[in-house]
Design a protein around this nucleic acid. Sequence first.
DNA 1: CGGCTACTTGAATACTTTCAATCCGCGTGG
DNA 2: CCACGCGGATTGAAAGTATTCAAGTAGCCG
Lengths: 245, 245
Amino acid sequence: MSVPCEQCPLRLTPLFRPFSENELGFIGRMKTDHIVVAPRAHIMHEDEIGGPVYTLFEGWAIRYHRLPNGGRQILDIMLPGDTIGLASALLGRIKHSVQAITTATLCVLEARSFPDLFSDHPALALNILQTRLAEEQRMDIRLSLLGRSDAEQRIAYLMLETFDRLRQRGIGHGGSTCPFPLQRRDLADAVGLSTVHVGRTLGSLRERRLADIQNGMLILFDREKLAELASYVPTGDAKGRRAIL
Amino acid sequence: MSVPCEQCPLRLTPLFRPFSENELGFIGRMKTDHIVVAPRAHIMHEDEIGGPVYTLFEGWAIRYHRLPNGGRQILDIMLPGDTIGLASALLGRIKHSVQAITTATLCVLEARSFPDLFSDHPALALNILQTRLAEEQRMDIRLSLLGRSDAEQRIAYLMLETFDRLRQRGIGHGGSTCPFPLQRRDLADAVGLSTVHVGRTLGSLRERRLADIQNGMLILFDREKLAELASYVPTGDAKGRRAIL
DNA sequence: CGGCTACTTGAATACTTTCAATCCGCGTGG
DNA sequence: CCACGCGGATTGAAAGTATTCAAGTAGCCG
């Protein structure tokens, strides 16, 4: 069941900028569909050419890269409000796939509208660029994480970052717990470790009563200590900058 | 000594798009200065706010992130034609520093012009976004590299990628050699290893007659084998898309 | 009650780091 | 012109961290 952009609840989260009538109208016309995909379904595949742009409306997805040796690197975890497929739409070719890990619903946006968006709504266009730049900074930190942190730090950081990203989107059950549908295997491919070692590390964090993941739920027992362990600093993110629904 | 954009040799490399009179004029007016910095000088510092945008005109620089524990992660190697400081200019705050590693010359561009650029030259604006998206893809691969490759692959890949990036910029001495001013220490911080292990790995590549770095020069003895080792596939990069001089 | 998949645990192995010592090239100053 | 000092590079040995292999457990669904 399609949600018109005017009534989109995501739009009201602190992640998105306020829109003018005009802008909202334009974005509304870009939206051509609203689809639901099953867990594990692919939203977009490596080497796919072109295709639409999506906004993840509900559910989780991963953006990943398959390596020639059979391995997998999860490049990013995509949460509601995240844009999927910009590179594919504007560059033509991409080097990663996107896969739903829960049931997910997506807004489908016509890629052809982008040149018009840039001509007619320069402020939106600038906000899109700003959003990409903010995402680049998040990726920079992820790079440092893989290059210069040990197993505990990597996992602790990912927990905290994901927890906070959910909060920014108005998701999360108030306390120190949030949904976390990634399995050991996914976690491993996200932080560059083996499944076994992720399991051990998780066990250690659990024993030390810092955090735990069970039954698809993340629990932060001691956010303070966890943040210190991971050198986690909550980022202001791109508050109020996102321009695409 | 300042080079007017109209005569900029970089502009003619396959990296950049062709510009109209109009566009070139606008970019020319954005350019407020042309400066030279010494090796090891900082071009921009973590937590710095705002500031101009630079284009690296000549020389090498590194974009890096300092970790609370004293470590350093080099996020990217910046080569002539690369844009520096977009995030700082458009987002206000950044989480990385940029440091010259050779003598470098920079074009200084007024950050204030960006809103006008987006209003008046939407095609340029779109190209800027496309360039960022292409860079994001390069960072994605770097992430896979740190997450899922061993020491030899990391270093081999970095060698090949850098070699080809220089070629795209019309730099390189024809054969299988190119300048490579990064020291062991820098290499280590770029690929997430210790200096010692970088040294050993480099030694191994040298013994096997695959590649070597000495006296600031990279030599690819056997590009074929090196590419196979690293699963390196030359990327079309963002050919002919860059819009900022 | 299988059979499946995810998760856990143990042991052996492999890769990388750390520590420490040595070497080398180069610029300085005697 | 040569000794000295310094930073970078190399090498060896020991310690640490993470991977692989393998076996076993737990929960879920038919």
